[in-house]
Amino acid sequence: MTRRAPLSLAARLAVAAAVVAVVLVLAYARSGSGIVVSQAVLTGLLLGGVYGLVAMGLTLIFGVLDIVNFAHGALMTVAMYGTVLLASHAGLDPYLTLLVTAPALFGIGMALQSGLINRTMGSSLANQLLLTLGIGLLIENVLLLSFGSEPRSVAVGYAAPLRAFGAVADLTRVIAFLGALGLAALLYLLLQRTRVGTAIRAVAANPDGAQLVGIDVRRMYVLTFALGTACAGAAGTLVAPFVTVEATTGELFNIIAFVVVVLGGMGNVVGALVGGLLIGLTEQLGGVLLPEQSPLLAVFVVFVLVLFLRPQGLFGRSS
């Protein structure tokens, strides 16, 4: 067996673009309508931005703590309920609640990591997975117990449809997309340009080495988990105006975020954002290609293919 030289990043992006183009053509052939396709692309990209933000939090946690976090979606739901309460009871603008939910989720993340998860650092995969699973189930069902199974929603006074290329996008989705991109950029800057970010990256690359140069690794774990959770929280608030808020709403985002994280390369923050957009597209175009199936089916098929063929993700170096 001879090994081919690894493709450069540019080549891989080109391959990805080619795949997207082929899928677009197929979708057009299948639906026979340009509007259907451009609608799918628009919806997919807008939602994909949010997937990207959720996945950035998840991949950060994975990259630094090496933990598969099954509580991520439930934490996102907490923020959704926070927005519901603050918007409908306190009359706040839903987007303003971001100033409350993101810091609150940051705090919850800190508490969870320092109180519970730090105790299992370095123990078996199964243990950590089960711990986050337990936390997720606990949060979800506390929400169910507190708010009941009746779905909630958040009203936005100025919601209006926007048009582009014959496709329609709700203003709330556009805001969510832009908000997600903005926060993603902020997170990226934080990781790349600040001392804390450098310390976090050092821990991700080599915990023992980081310890040696005097970085408090446990504290970085706490901070990272908190940051990741704040991402989930911000995403929860951003999507609250256009999803029905139930105790299990975050579950789906959690699942999709896993797919995105693997696609983008576990631990790769930029990969997560690009992966989010790709999975948003996959979901919508999959719905066009296989109209009688759930759009998620296409997502899982892509997931399994990526797991098999490129477990290090589209943008990861094989490490």
């Binding site: 067996m1 090994r3 690894p6 063929l309 490129r310 094989s318 490490s319």
Partner: peptide, 15 residues
């Protein structure tokens, strides 16, 4: 010294 005793070679990837 050679920690990776040839076992953790990456999954073979086609591209």
């Amino acid at each position: 010294g050679n920690d990776d005793d040839a076992d953790d070679e990456d999954p073979e990837t086609p591209c």
